[in-house]
Amino acid sequence: MQKPLVSFVVPCYRLATFLPECVDSILSQTFEDFEILIMDDCSPDNTEEVARTFTDGRVTYVRNEENLGAIRNYNKGILLSRGKYVWLISADDRLRRPYILRRYVETLENHPEVGLAFCPGVSLRGGKEGAVIDYSTYGDVDRIVRGEEIIKHSFKVKGNAILAASVLVRRDCYEKLSLYPVDVVWAGVPVDFIWGGDWYMWLLISLNYHVAYFAEPMVCYREHELSMTNAITQEKIDICWHSELAVITMISQAAKEKGALTVYKDCLSALANFYAKHCASKPYSWMGQTSWSTIDLQQVEATLDRSPYTEQEKAWIRSRIMVALADLYYSEGDSVSARSYYLKALKLKPFMLPVFLKLIVLSFGGPGRQVRELLRTAREHLVRG
């Protein structure tokens, strides 16, 4: 049997209600050389009944003998798929343009240096489309992007900047680099990668390939109470900070092994910034509700002590955590806390000239804040220019 060019892997657990929309959005694509694997992870609902209603020969229904969990179900679907390109899309999401697959395939076929393609997404709630999801956008023009730029952008927006529902991956990426990691342990802590798995994969692929970006929002990302995002952010918030810091650490080690020292240094800075965000309470908002992830400096020390970094690198990270915390408090108008953390940073690393300058600016109060804002704006213009 001839292999399809594209494989859609559709993991499904308790999502029978949404499955028809997802599958129909794939079947309506103008590019038709694909297969669809519905990966039923022992759903307690009528997923099998719904899946059996699809009569198109390109649709295959697979029910696991036991519940594998999301990550193992993803990997099983990828291994069963036969396409040159693999699209992993949850059963509750859908494509919103019939030409998205054709555009993706044409680009990846013409650019073998590209490992994945993505686009912005639109929120979908109660069956109605909402606004474009801010973090999923990367400009207003189509482009091929150096992978290192995607990594830097992701760290800048402080999290996963690629919407999983929008991603088509070259099979070689999974075969040569990695499937979704399972049984992850970070700093001695078992990590459930249901939160960070996608982000890790996109960063790892970006470390080794270029990335294709399409500016038009061509997918829908559904927001509902049964979603994994809702369960994690409302009930299992510790998973978030464990996963985020594990992802950055793992990518830093992959960059070091590859000799990508610029990315490695970016990872160390990102690690410090993420630690600081969680120390200052990082919000996770979903469907109008917000949960807060908060860790203390004892937890920072406990995890840093078990990290793979050298003592010199750990000292550098600690000092940058203090600076990042000071910057956060300064941005919130808490000059007292900002000053305290700038001084703690200097105690760890005495010769940081930028921190001395920030302390001087801080001592001038309102006028100092204006000067700092002007300097920040000028720096952003230089980066863009």
Results as ranks from 00 to 15, higher is better:
V169M: 08
N208E: 04
R369V: 05
T60M: 06
E49H: 10
P44K: 04
D33W: 01
D33E: 09
A272H: 03
D140Q: 09
L261P: 02
N64D: 09
E106L: 09
L348Q: 13
R171C: 09
H278A: 05
Q253N: 05
Y209N: 00
G366D: 04
V185P: 04
S206F: 05
V263H: 05
V62D: 08
W186Q: 02
A254C: 03
L124Y: 12
C173G: 00
E48R: 14
R96F: 04
A16M: 01
Y342D: 06
S281M: 10
A16N: 01
E244V: 02
A326T: 09
D40K: 01
L15S: 03
G197K: 07
T262S: 12
L382V: 13
S7Q: 03
V263C: 06
Y104I: 08
D134Q: 11
M250F: 12
L328E: 13
K76P: 00
L79P: 00
A302E: 15
W199I: 01
T377R: 15
Q29K: 12
V336T: 06
D305P: 06
G197Q: 08
W195M: 06
P98F: 12
W292L: 15
L204E: 04
Y342P: 15
D92T: 05
D140L: 04
Q29M: 09
T310L: 13
G333H: 14
Q312I: 15
V6P: 00
G57I: 02
D198L: 08
K358Y: 00
E373Y: 12
S319E: 14
T249Y: 07
Y342M: 08
I150L: 06
R102L: 14
Q2G: 03
L163S: 02
E106Y: 02
V10I: 08
L374G: 01
E149I: 00
I162H: 07
E35S: 08
S178I: 00
G333Q: 12
V132R: 11
I71N: 05
L271A: 08
F214W: 02
D266N: 10
R143V: 12
E373N: 11
R102H: 12
L328M: 14
T55V: 15
Y342R: 06
K3G: 00
D334N: 15
M201E: 07
L353A: 10
G77S: 10
S123T: 14
D296F: 13
V323A: 05
Y330G: 10
E313R: 10
A215D: 09
M218T: 05
P112N: 12
N46I: 07
Y329L: 06
G147N: 00
D266M: 07
L79W: 02
E301F: 15
Y61G: 14
Y174T: 03
I248T: 05
P190Y: 02
I194C: 14
R222Y: 03
G77T: 04
K265A: 13
A315Y: 10
N110Y: 01
T137G: 01
C22G: 00
